[in-house]
Amino acid sequence: MHSFNVADYATRFAGRSSNIKRPREITCFSYDENHVLRHDESSLRYYYTPALHGDLSGGYDSFIKHDDSVDEHLDSLLESLIELEKKTGKRSTEDVDFVTWRGMITKIMTVPFMEDAFEMNAVFHEGSIYLEENNLYKQSTRGFQDERGARMSYWGYKFESLSTLSRPWAEASREEIENRSREIVNNKAQYCSIVKTGFGNCGLIIGGEVDAIWDCRPMNPENPINYVELKTSRQISTPNQNHNFEKKLQRFWAQSFLLGVPKIVIGFRDDHGILTSIDIRETQSIPANIKKEHLAQGLGPPPWNGNVAINFTTAFLEWLKSTLADTKGVWRIRYQQRGKQIEVFQVQE
């Protein structure tokens, strides 16, 4: 059993953020409306302002929902890498230490300030560590989702369909734009971007779902892509709600940061799921803005710190890289709610 000490993160990981590489997309893929994998961008959506005062519960009964209890492992991510290698003739994992879904790194990144439990499985293979969620653990801890919970998770998907188009605004017809509220929500269709990025001396390939694009793919592929992350959140009217929102914002930030998604559009709703306002934030400036706000309003120190999260992640990944280097079999990475360490141990020879 190996363990990585999480305690005293605030002082241990303070200071300037460690060396980070800007995420660059290497390839992408789509699931169509039947969740069939396609190696193209056919399911990419285009952001366009949603009409306010829309009902996020609208069409709830006709929701076409993807069954996410089935373990999909890293399959589609790996298939895409194979597809990419066919195209380029080059090994895609050269100098890559980790291959994983964005959600795994998000969980690690938010350990210092959120202390939420997780379990992952890791395998070292030909120089890279493949990291995925322990699906059994996920299913067992998920708990029962009541009607309201199901509805609230629908709100998020509905918001996506209210605020995106299947093609750029200029090409979309007025009818398509105005009838978005009547579209059937289907979360089987997805668009995923696969990026190469780096934390300290670790190279990573991360795949993750992207909700929309702000404009269009840049003409020059070297330039960053203006993807958009779409989120819903309860409208804020009390200090406590604001506190919760700021904590939530950490996850929004980490997710977008990891894929290099520069914009987060937050749809604020009331308790009945009515969209009340829209807020567009630049991912990059979220940590600094929270700090500024807290300073300006005398709210004390901000609830989380971006640099600490990045430095923590770097230290952990570098440690994990050396711990699992040249090992065989399947390893478990475990963190317990508010634990003082992350444990790593072998589960399969």
Binding site: Y47, Y48, T49, W169, A170, E171, S173, I177, W214, I280
Partner: peptide, 12 residues
């Protein structure tokens, strides 16, 4: 020019 212009505010 491929499409009809629409009288709408742009996103953003």
């Amino acid at each position: 020019k491929k499409h009809q212009h629409k009288s709408m505010l742009l996103r953003g």
